Amino acid sequence: MAGEHRSGCPINLSLEVFGDKWSLLILRDMIFGGRRHFRELLNGSQEGIASNILANRLKTLVELGMLTRRPDPAHKQKAIYSLTEPSIALVPVLAALGAWGRRWLPVTEELSVRARLLEEGGPDLWARFMAELREEHLGVPTTPPPDGRTVRDRLQAAYLATKSTSA
Rank of each mutant, 00 (worst) to 15 (best):
M1F: 04
E4M: 09
R6G: 08
G8T: 10
C9P: 02
P10W: 15
P10S: 09
P10G: 05
P10N: 08
I11T: 08
I11L: 14
N12A: 13
N12F: 08
N12H: 07
N12Q: 13
S14R: 09
S14A: 14
S14L: 14
L15Q: 14
L15H: 08
E16R: 12
F18C: 04
F18A: 05
F18V: 13
G19L: 09
K21F: 05
K21E: 04
W22K: 02
S23W: 00
L24H: 05
L24V: 07
L24C: 01
L24K: 12
R28I: 01
D29Q: 15
D29I: 02
M30G: 10
M30E: 06
M30A: 06
F32A: 04
F32P: 00
G34C: 08
G34P: 10
G34Q: 11
R35T: 02
R36F: 10
R36K: 15
R36P: 08
H37C: 02
H37L: 14
F38S: 03
R39Y: 02
E40K: 09
L41R: 06
G44V: 09
S45M: 00
Q46V: 03
E47H: 12
S51D: 14
S51F: 05
N52R: 06
N52I: 02
I53Y: 01
L54V: 09
A55C: 05
R57Y: 06
T60E: 13
L61I: 11
V62C: 15
E63A: 14
L64P: 00
M66D: 01
M66Y: 12
M66H: 07
L67G: 10
R69S: 13
R70K: 11
R70W: 00
P73Q: 07
P73H: 10
H75Q: 13
K76R: 15
Q77P: 02
K78H: 13
K78R: 15
A79N: 15
Y81G: 12
S82A: 09
S82E: 07
L83K: 04
T84H: 03
S87H: 04
I88S: 04
A89C: 03
V91T: 05
V91C: 02
V91P: 07
P92K: 07
L94V: 05
A96V: 06
A96Q: 11
A96N: 11
G98M: 03
W100K: 11
W100N: 05
G101Y: 03
R102I: 06
R102P: 04
R103P: 00
V107C: 07
V107P: 00
V113Q: 04
R114W: 01
R116C: 00
L117E: 12
E119Q: 12
E119K: 11
E120S: 05
G121H: 01
G122W: 03
P123V: 10
P123H: 07
P123E: 14
D124Y: 00
D124P: 00
L125G: 00
L125H: 03
A127I: 01
F129C: 01
E132H: 10
L133Q: 11
E136T: 12
V140L: 12
P141M: 01
P141Q: 01
P141K: 01
P141V: 01
T142S: 09
T143H: 04
P144C: 04
P144V: 11
P145D: 02
P146C: 02
P146I: 04
T150H: 02
V151R: 09
R152H: 04
Q156R: 15
A157T: 14
Y159R: 08
L160A: 14
L160K: 15
A161G: 04
T162R: 15
T165E: 13
T165R: 14
T165K: 11
S166E: 08
A167N: 08
